[in-house]
Design a protein around this nucleic acid. Sequence first.
RNA 1: GUCCGGAUAGUGUAGAGGCCUAUCAUGAAGCCCUGUCGAGGCUUCGACCCGGGUUCGACUCCCGGUCCGGGCGCCA
Length: 434
Amino acid sequence: MILRTHYSGDIRPEMAGAEVSLAGWAHEIRDLGGICFLVLRDREGFAQVTLVAKKVDKGLMETVRHLSRETIVLVKGNVKAEQKAPRGYEIIPTEIKVLSKAESPLPMDPTGKVGADLDTRLDSRFVDLRRPSVLAVFRIESAVMRSLRDFFYENGFIEVCTPKIVATATEGGTALFPISYFDKEAFLNQSPQLYKQILMSAGLDRVFEIGAIFRAEEHDTRRHLNEAVSIDVEVSFADHHEVMRLLEEAVARAYKYVSQSCTNYLDVLEIELEVPKTPFRRVTYTQALEMANENRTTEIEWGDDLDTEAEKTIGKAVGEHYFITEWPTEIKPYYTQPEEERPEISKGFDLMHPKMELASGAQRVHDYDLLVKRIKDQGMDPDGFEFYLRSFMYGMPPHAGWGLGLGRVVLTMLDLENIRDAVLFPRDRRRLVP
RNA sequence: GUCCGGAUAGUGUAGAGGCCUAUCAUGAAGCCCUGUCGAGGCUUCGACCCGGGUUCGACUCCCGGUCCGGGCGCCA
């Protein structure tokens, strides 16, 4: 049984006379003496419940007058078309039941009239999310995931779930969270990379996963978190060009879907979403370096990674989504395939938004010997990768893939200030609760 | 890690050595009001991060700490 018959957003003035039950939060109570308005809020909007002193049961009037804000109520009543009411209708109640009382004062203002710092908001995220403008971000995030899933299924992908508890590091570079696993040492996985690749050997051909990744870096920025959601893709018998094409289509598709299906949430956020045009511009690493080194005091040398300043300069110059391609092999992970003709250049790429990096990917090394060599060259021990390397010994198709940060897609799409705004319960260096 | 900025009622803020028994808004409690829609009016309640120092006197200045925000770094 569901207590409500309708969401507030389902009700139309044309339903006048209908008996409905609404359930939600007492958003506001405006008592004008002879008439009293209760604004009930649920996930889909607001409904005005109107009580006229002369016409309504005294007990009901008293109940409403003494409701604390954010108390959960069940309102049974009749729809009345009323021009003076917001959205052209109001509810004339016959029964109001308090389901759960809200204490007061509230930890923050859920109406948005009075602001709250990010820290305050995150501490009381359950109240923060009651603000339609905050919820809108996550409704859109849901739409992004849905559009990507649709896109992947339409393109022959199999959705997979790889383990998050692992025995070894994936890539070496980043720090891992150690965990206790009975009598063994284990880690939280930094990326599904190795498992996606194993599945290519297994013959799944095209896989995707939307899942959590963990990085134990003590970074402290507006675009990094220690737990993130990664949208990962791996495709067999494909090169990096093919998966770049997939990636740009996936991103454009998400924008398109959101712009069509989330108009009300975009309105709440006052955003006019522009769908990026594909194909995205390809900028080689060498070209990127040239752009970055203009008007710069300390030049970045060929072979160095691009720093934040460089990303910003290039982003400004390009002004839309773009790929950086032809990275030096040396600064890409060991599983990145070098070009055959000039092995110092790799088949790795990054997808960039003018504000920040969104994804990175590559055609992968599928040759066992080369992979072992590359692992050694990067100062790691192939023994730790045996479970992974074994899958390269018995038939591994050439393959390519990428990982795209969900939070960053939403952050850049909605022009949010902080990645924490795009994650329900962010985990950063200091924050572990809620 | 490092550099810059900050910490005042539940929330968001004003404050520049005595003006502070601390401003405003929001909120809460109560009262008035029949069409509000950020309703309005009146009354009441509620705060200077912690420790040390300077000074006759510190919310205010100095030192240390804690926490928060931002930049960079680390990170793909």
